[in-house]
């Protein structure tokens, strides 16, 4: 079986550098703040997704984000990763600014991580092995179902601790996660980049 070519994850490295730089400045200067965005500081729609409320939140969100990005980029999906990140970031900004009018501040990269999670699962679905494919389909379905339930029911499931007055925004996971479905369009046109040797 011929191994697929591995690429240096330059895009992930740039993303990691951005997250590191964001952690070095006071989070208040980068977080999404509705009144400041309305006053013209529109960059906060994006930079708010690079800062976090707690170290635990930062570790989980950026860990998942960078881990998925490395895996996808090493397998040759750099353009898809870039597209998905752009979609995920844009849909997160939409969910926060336009679709959650009672939100006055926001921090967190889980929208980007959700988009890459769905993309990774979609890429795995193209595998010939039915067990792995079913695992991936189930994972995406469970992920979107959880986010959907949280959005409709107005309560979160097993969310980690956040500072008082800060609540998880399930709509971000739901909407940004659909950004990962952009990978579906590529399934029929290109190989997944995964080893495609059938298990005999």
């Amino acid at each position: 079986m011929k191994p697929f070519p591995r690429r240096f994850p330059a895009l992930t490295a740039a993303l990691a550098a951005s997250c590191t730089a964001a952690s070095l400045v006071p989070a208040e200067t980068l977080e999404y703040d509705r009144s400041r965005v309305a006053a013209g500081e529109v960059w906060r729609l994006i930079t708010g997704q690079l800062v976090h409320w707690t170290p635990r939140m930062a570790a989980l969100d950026t860990g998942m984000l960078l881990g998925l990005a490395i895996w996808l980029e090493v397998r040759g999906d750099r353009r898809l990763v870039a597209l998905t990140l752009a979609l995920g970031g844009g849909l997160t900004a939409l969910a926060v600014h336009a679709l959650s009018p009672d939100l006055i501040a926001y921090r967190g990269s889980s929208g980007l991580a959700s988009a890459l999670f769905v993309l990774a699962a979609v890429r795995i679905v193209s595998a010939t092995d039915p067990v792995t494919r079913n695992f991936a389909i189930a994972a995406v379905a469970l992920f979107l179902a959880k986010a959907g339930f949280e959005f409709l029911a107005g309560q979160t499931l097993f969310a980690g601790p956040l500072p008082p007055g800060v609540h998880v925004v399930p709509l971000v996971h739901l909407l940004a996660g659909t950004g990962g479905l952009v990978g579906v369009g590529r399934l029929t046109r290109e190989p997944s980049g995964l080893p495609s040797c059938p298990i005999s």
């Binding site: 976090h52 969100d61 959650s100 921090r107 990774a120 969310a159 609540h167």
Partner: peptide, 28 residues
């Protein structure tokens, strides 16, 4: 009815799902 702060925070369920996919890939 005044505003509140929000966080995009992944939890343990998402971590478990990602781990399950990784394990299935490894086994494969």
């Amino acid at each position: 009815t005044s505003g509140h702060s929000g966080g995009g925070a992944l939890g343990i369920p998402e971590l478990i799902l990602a781990a399950l996919i990784s394990i299935s890939l490894l086994l494969r």
